[in-house]
Structures are given as structure tokens and as C-alpha cells.
Design a protein around this nucleic acid. Structure first.
Lengths: 347, 347
DNA sequence: AGTTGCCACTAAAACGTTTTCGTGTTGACA
DNA sequence: TGTCAACACGAAAACGTTTTAGTGGCAACT
């Protein structure tokens, strides 16, 4: 087992001082040519790499980003992570991920564990429980300690920081409009509870589209799923809620769902109820992912461009980190554009 | 902006020495009761937390695990990460993820970036390109430097280290047997190229099942997809290959696919060709994920229990880390059991 | 009174870097 | 010959901890 050499052992071996070695490796002009050669040759031979931890301690920056998301088994979030990773790596940063599992406590713990010097800044999508409790002290405190945070997707208006979002209301409006244009007479929405910011905004877009077309709003056609912070484990409950919904709304011929799972589950129930897609009922989902692509029939969705969102978030964070001392420019919120990818659940 | 206090500022403020503060906080019996009280109160008031980086430097361990996977937008891998995260967090470890994107170079870079003190050990699933090049020097060198590695799923036999796998051949054999039991007369397999260890092993299981039932092997019914290291971007190519396959194998009435995507894509093509599932043709996939659950019809698959694999991998790694000095017990490879979850693509 | 032992605390080293400030040797120049 | 700059290098501090090895004072014991 070859131990990693340190400056100290190189210095001892070459009979020079530690500082000489350090300077030689950084090609300082203080050091003579032959010594530089000697040191570099030795370093290469023994595959010397500076110890990152020591550097972090010295520089007071770790060159790593903390990403905290509600869950990782979720196509949208992984796409975002990919974008973050790519950008971060290009800039020489690492990414450390924390999972909140939609839980307030785990979010607090994660923030806390990493805020002790392990990372330079956070990229965060807020847990549902946090959203519903409206308790944001941990986030505010982190920022107050000088650790920058960038929020994406699920965002908190009251907290001043950089944000990366999608224009949820405009996009939803556009999606519903498309349903209308395709001939739907009675359009329903399957959304989340209002404390989830995006659910609320997408519902607003839905309402705006109806109003804009002078269609009367039927509040029975608005289904707000209460999934107790964790969709994965409660799938039967979800199906049940949707089934009841369809039974009490037999005349809907268009569904706008705020995420893939809701859309696909609704399609399944609709099929079970004997409706054919898209002839009897059309569907548009939000958040384009593998599920939509491979659904039967392939689902028309609005793509949020998660990869791009990740890149943007990483860019915002790293830019802020690198010019920390310069003028503290005010916070930005970048809106990444969306796109409806038409597949076979719309006419 | 409140800066995090250090031992030094607490010491100065309270007019004691740094060591006293450190000991007081760790409740050392060397320190008098009233001093302890004073220090603790002050620390709590200013929300003191020891700086992780300094600790890492001192202890020569970072309490973080490096996880390197081929891609993150993939249900199986994210499930594994969840398992790793859970176990690691319970033991006070953090997880830093690196993406190889199935590329050899990125795998090397990732290993390199993190091996410089940033992490205590690796959990790794090998990139396809690495597998096909058969160049494992980076992995061997990392281990040689004293950094333990645990491999999972895609594993390299030649490298001695802890491993977490699934009994690919036995499981595949079982899956194919099930197809046989359900009345399939001509069973095909859609696999990967042989350099992907799991593809090879699963194909072997398929062959064993046929032999065991005295069914003659038709090598034309074995399709090996060559997806040039990146399935996501080449979906049409995949469809094309499968379509050609079906046309030259019209009589197959059962398909065993080594992953979800292959299975679902094959189902789509089969449907397009007018076959009905499972009446005309049955399907079993490998790697149970959201896609299988929500496919139409819901796909029968073998579940690899990714979460459990992640937990096991983390356990192996952390155990090795914590008893580093004790007897260097030999490497383990744990085989997590699999399970066929029957849905609607089999009779 | 002198020794011993304990108590409560401090000094300093160590982890691996980078960087500031010296410092001794050389050569050139007046 | 004496002065100065340039050169090539070293010592030490600093980042924030923990830990080992003291240290001074006091009480108890002989």
C-alpha cells in the first residue's frame, strides 16, 4: 500500500524545505530551475496530489456544493442534479447530495451537517413538510451565516436568495389552452395541495386559461391530492382518489395534471373506466420524464428542462461564491423557459 | 451576517485557553464544573459547531463516502443511492456523488478528484466504457493508496474488493423458467453486449434455463443491443434494432429483457406489430422500477432491491473504514436476493 | 515542614497546505 | 573594498481542531 506523499515527505526526501517544495510545484519564480525540475520529477514519480482538506482549511473554501432535494428517486430531480453536476464539475466543484425525504427535520439536519464548513453553498428544493409548516428559520439562518443558497422549483418567496424557476402559471395556462384548442369542453386539473408552491401556481394558470376563454370554473373538477409528503408509498390511495374524482366528474374530456405520476395514474383509471385516449379524454402532464415518454399512449407533457435548471442553479451559486467580496449585487431569479412536447394523449 | 464562532474566539471572549474550551465542550473531567457551564452556555448562545474541515484534517478521515455511478437519471441507481444515503446518514456519514456518464475518462477524473482526501472510501458501479476497455488501473491504484472501494451491480472480478451483487444467472434462469411455465414455446432475450458483466451473466441464466428444459437454443433469438455507452440518446436506434429482431423472429412468444427500457420498448414494438400482451407474447424485465410499474400493461419484472443493495454497500464500506487497523479480514461479496414481481405481462 | 497527589487549567504540537517575511550567498558596481 | 540588488531558499504563521504533556496551586498526609 502506497501512502500518498505529502509536501513534508518530499521535502525530507529531497533535503529541501517544505516551502521550497510547495513553491516549486506552483512554479514560483523564487525557486531555481534545477530545484524545480528535481521537485517536479519527484512529485510526478510518486504521483503527488495536494490534500484537498488541507487546502480547504487554508482557503476557507471547499469547492463543493451541497444539493438538498426532497427525493432522488424522481426523474425531474435527477435531471436537475445532472445539470448541476455538469456545470459544477466544469468549474472544478464537487457535489454532495442530501435527501430530505420531504421531511422538515431531515432538511434541517442536512443543512446543519453540511453548513459546518463542508460546503461553500447550497442548492435547495424545499421539502413539502417545510412548505406546509411555513417554518423557514433554518434556511434564513444558513444564509445569515454567510452561506449562499440557490432555490429551484419549490421556492420560498419570503426568503431573499437566488432562484431558478419555471413560469408555472404561464406554462400551465398554455397547456390548458392547448387542451381547449384541441376541442376539450370540460377540463379538469389534478394538482397538489396549495402549500406546494408549484401546485398552487399551476392551478392558477389553469384558472386563468379557463377565464380567458370564458369557461365557467367548476370547482368539483379541481382535484387536490393530499399525499402526506410522500407519493411513492401511497399509490393505491392516489388511485382511489382519482377514481372517485372521475366518477363524480363523468363529463371531463381533458385533464391537466401537475406531474407525471398523477397524469399516468389518471390515464390508467380512465382506461379502466372504458374511456379511450385521446378520443374520449385528453391528457397533458407537467414535468417531462421517462414515464411520459414510455407511457401508453406516450403522454403529452410540458418539459421543464430540468438539466438546464440545474446548470442555471449551479451557475448562479458559483458566480456568487467566486465574487463574494465584490459588490453584493442583488439576488436574481432566473426563469427557464418551458416547452410542450406533444405526444399521443392530445389530438 | 453572523460569522461562525471558532474555539479561538470563544476562548478569547471567556478569557480561557483554546484547549479549555475544547475540553469543556467535550465534557472532559479535566475541567471544573463552573467553567464547563460557562463555556457551554456561551457556545449554545452563539450556536457553535466544530468546523468539519478542521476535524477532517486532524482525524485524517472525512466521514464522507464517494459514490460514483454511470448515470443518475436511472431508477435503479437512484434507488441504490437512497439506500446508501440512508445508511450513511445514520452512521454520521455524508455522500458525495460523481457521475461517470458511462465514460472511462470521467470515471478516472472523478476517482482522482475525490481521492485527494475528500472522501474516506468509494462505492462504485463501473462505466460501460471502462468495462469494454478492460482498463482498471485507476481502480487498482485507488485501492493501493489505501482507499477502500465497494463495487455494486457492475463489478470487476479481477479486482479484489467488497462487492454487492445479485445472483444474475440464477435470477435470470428463474425468470425464464417462469416464462416457460407460463406456456411460452419460443423465448427470446434482449441483452447488452457481453462486456457488460450483468448482461453476460443474465444471458447465461437464460441459456441455462433453456438447457435445463431441453429447449434448443436459437442464437437468432438472442439480441445484444450495442448502445455505445449511452442509452438515453439513442432511443430510435434501439427501437429499430428491436423491430428488426421481431421481424426475423416472428415466432417468439416470450421475451426476457435485461432491463426495463429494453422490455418496455420491446412491448411497444410488439404492440405496433399487432401482437397482444400477454396473450400473443409475454414479457419479463430485469430491474424493477417506476417504468415497469406504470407501463401498459404493467410489466412483470425481477426486482433487484436496489435500496437494499445501497444499504449493504454502505454497510460494507463503513465497517471496513471503522475497523481499519484491526485484522484485515478478507473481502466479502454479498449477494442480495431477488424477487419476481408478477404484473400483467405474464400469464 | 516537606512530600505527595489532585485539581483546573495552559502550552504546544500535529494534521497538510500556502504565504509572508527573512536571510545568507553571490555577483556587479562604484 | 564596501554596498546593494538579485537570487535561492528557509522559518514560521495561519486555517480550526484535538490531545499530550506539562504547570502552578492547594489540601492532605506523614
Amino acid at each position: 500500500m502506497k501512502q500518498k506523499p505529502t509536501l513534508k515527505v518530499i521535502a525530507r526526501e529531497l533535503d529541501v524545505s517544505v516551502s521550497t517544495v510547495s513553491k516549486a510545484l506552483r512554479d514560483s519564480k523564487e525557486i531555481g530551475e534545477k530545484t524545480k525540475e528535481r521537485v517536479k520529477a519527484f512529485a510526478k514519480l510518486y504521483n503527488y496530489r495536494p490534500n484537498n482538506i488541507a487546502l480547504s482549511l487554508k482557503n476557507k473554501k471547499t469547492k463543493t456544493l451541497g444539493v438538498i432535494i426532497p427525493e432522488i428517486v424522481h426523474h425531474f430531480f435527477t435531471t436537475v442534479i445532472s445539470g448541476i453536476e455538469k456545470f459544477a464539475n466544469e468549474q472544478g466543484y464537487n457535489v454532495i447530495v442530501g435527501l430530505s425525504n420531504e421531511s422538515f427535520d431531515k432538511e434541517v439536519i442536512n443543512l446543519d451537517m453540511l453548513a459546518n464548513g463542508s460546503i461553500d453553498g447550497f442548492i435547495l428544493s424545499v421539502a413539502k413538510e417545510t412548505l406546509s409548516k411555513q417554518d423557514f428559520h433554518h434556511i434564513a439562518e444558513t444564509i445569515d451565516q454567510g452561506i449562499p443558497i440557490v432555490m429551484f422549483d419549490r421556492v420560498i418567496d419570503e426568503i431573499p436568495c437566488d432562484k431558478v424557476i419555471v413560469d408555472d402559471v404561464a406554462t400551465s395556462k398554455k397547456a390548458v389552452q392547448q387542451l381547449i384548442n384541441s376541442g376539450c369542453k370540460k377540463i379538469g386539473i389534478i394538482s397538489t395541495m396549495d402549500y406546494v408552491s408549484v401546485g398552487k401556481l399551476r392551478t392558477r394558470g389553469y384558472l386563468e386559461a379557463l377565464n380567458h376563454n370564458d369557461i365557467e370554473v367548476d370547482f368539483n373538477a379541481i382535484l387536490k391530492i393530499d399525499d402526506k409528503f410522500h407519493a411513492a408509498t401511497e399509490h393505491e390511495a392516489l388511485e382511489k382518489q382519482i377514481e372517485i374524482y372521475f366518477e363524480s366528474n363523468p363529463e371531463v374530456d381533458g385533464i391537466f395534471a401537475v406531474n407525471e405520476i398523477y397524469a399516468i395514474t389518471a390515464m390508467k383509471i380512465a382506461r379502466k373506466l372504458g374511456k379511450s385516449i385521446p378520443e374520449d379524454i385528453q391528457f397533458i402532464g407537467f414535468t417531462d420524464g421517462v414515464l411520459s415518454q414510455h407511457a401508453y399512449p406516450p403522454l403529452t407533457t410540458v418539459s421543464q428542462h430540468g438539466f438546464e435548471m440545474g446548470e442555471e442553479a449551479a451557475r448562479l451559486l458559483i458566480e456568487r461564491l467566486e465574487k463574494q467580496d465584490e459588490e453584493t449585487e442583488s439576488y436574481q431569479t432566473v426563469v427557464v423557459n418551458t416547452e410542450i412536447v406533444e405526444r399521443e394523449t392530445t389530438k
